[in-house]
Amino acid sequence: MIILVFILLHWYASLFFQTVFLHRYAAHSMFKMNRFWEKAFFIATWIAQGTSYLNPFAYAYMHRIHHMHAENEKDPHSPEHSGNIFSFMLKTYDYYAKIKNRDLAIEKELSMRIPRWEKFEKISESWLSRLMWAGVYIAIYILYAPNIYFFFLLPVHFFMSPIHGAIINWFSHKIGYKNFKQDNHSTNLFPIEIFLGGEALHNNHHAQPWKANFARRWFEFDPSYVIMRMMHALKIITIHKNALK
Rank of each mutant, 00 (worst) to 15 (best):
F120C: 06
L131I: 12
P146W: 06
S124C: 12
R113E: 11
L104A: 02
K100C: 03
E107F: 05
D103I: 01
I148V: 10
L143N: 00
K122S: 14
N147P: 05
K122N: 12
T92V: 04
I99E: 02
I123S: 10
N101R: 15
W127N: 13
I99Y: 05
L131Y: 09
E109K: 15
I138S: 00
A139K: 02
L131K: 07
Y149T: 03
L154C: 04
F120A: 14
Y137R: 00
A145P: 07
W127V: 03
L153A: 11
F150D: 03
L143Q: 02
D103M: 08
A105N: 10
S111T: 04
K100S: 03
H157Q: 04
M132P: 00
R113P: 02
L128I: 15
G135Y: 02
L110N: 13
L143C: 07
P155S: 06
S111A: 15
K100Q: 13
E107L: 09
M132W: 08
D94W: 06
K108V: 06
I140D: 00
N101T: 07
L104Y: 14
F120T: 03
P115D: 06
F150T: 03
A139R: 01
H157I: 04
W127Q: 12
L143I: 09
R130H: 11
E107K: 13
I114D: 07
Y93H: 10
V136I: 14
K91D: 04
N101S: 09
F150H: 09
A97T: 05
V156S: 10
W133T: 01
A105K: 15
L154N: 06
L104R: 12
D103P: 02
T92A: 15
K119E: 12
K100E: 11
S124P: 07
Y141P: 01
E125W: 09
S111C: 07
R102A: 01
A105D: 07
K108R: 14
L110A: 11
Y137A: 00
K108M: 08
K100P: 01
L110V: 10
G135W: 04
G135N: 03
P155Y: 05
F152K: 12
W117T: 03
K100R: 14
P146K: 08
A97I: 10
V156A: 12
L143V: 02
Y144K: 08
V136Y: 01
L154P: 10
W117A: 04
P115N: 13
L143P: 00
Y96V: 01
I106H: 10
